[in-house]
Design a protein around this nucleic acid. Structure first.
Lengths: 144, 144
DNA sequence: AATTATTCCTACTATTTCACTAGAGTATAA
DNA sequence: TTATACTCTAGTGAAATAGTAGGAATAATT
């Protein structure tokens, strides 16, 4: 029950964009350095984020990526879904692409997975990039 | 962000034991037939459940597995943890075996994973095997 | 016009994890 | 003493993960 590096790295990249929100585009190179993520790999992660209109790109020199909205309008859950697909601890309870299973008594445990799915969605959909940025700055003052 | 077959099959096996709670041990063979799970594979899943004292075994003819407690005393979260280890969407927020990461600003996203972890634990720790059994019987009456 | 910095696109690959299978050994009831 | 179970460990095939690599397109700078 782990999130992949796609979700983890991609989210960190988005936080980096949020921190830079007022300063124009940030290149993959810079993000990858600041966040210590492989440049080529991070490039791939930006594609789904752009496709889902969470970030937009500016090509050419001095280009890079920008958020499409203010940090407080960007939901962490949407970032994760863009990177990993629908949030579902097991395929049969995926809201978007449920996979129906033959077994009648799979319903016995379905309740469990539905509750987990809802709990995770609730947690992720009530956090914005701004929340994370605030968390960072408040932690900085505590000194390590 | 998926649960493995270990968690899914193992939980289904435990529900099967709960349904049979008053009738003595249930063999892996029977469980595997009722739940349509490979016998040899399910055998392996019973080991951690036994080790964590959620089930106990009776060897020899007419043997099998039993719950160690009443279904309403067995927490779904404990079953999942026995089968998959600590509930943690990323390693750094594992309550038992946290893996410390060097990156100071990993803290930026740590909040996210902690919230997810807590949400999942809360969901799983507030369900017992009895809850699932009741869910089954009530669903049976709805037809389908 | 050439150069440089950037995103875009796609194919490839190494590693790891998952989901089993297989078989030999041990305990126990009938 | 035999059949029925659990116990333990090693092996394996397929799939997913986590990247690498390279070239084409685009835009600003010189």
């Amino acid at each position: 029950m782990k999130f992949s590096t796609k979700a983890r790295y991609g989210l960190r990249a988005m936080v980096e964009l949020a921190l830079n929100y007022k300063n124009g585009p940030l290149s993959v190179k810079v993000i990858s350095e600041r966040q210590d993520i492989s440049e080529a790999y991070l490039e791939q992660l930006m594609a789904p984020l752009t496709r889902h209109k969470l970030a937009k790109s500016v090509r050419g020199a001095y280009g890079g990526y920008l958020l499409t909205k203010e940090p407080n309008k960007i939901i962490v859950g949407d970032i994760i879904r863009a990177l990993e697909g629908p949030i579902a601890p097991v395929d049969c309870v995926s809201k978007d692409e449920p996979r129906d299973c033959q077994r009648a008594d799979s319903c016995v445990t379905k309740l469990v997975w539905e509750k987990v799915r809802d709990a995770v969605e609730d947690a992720l959909d009530n956090l914005t990039l701004e929340d994370l940025c605030q968390n960072l700055t408040s932690q900085d003052t505590t000194g390590k």
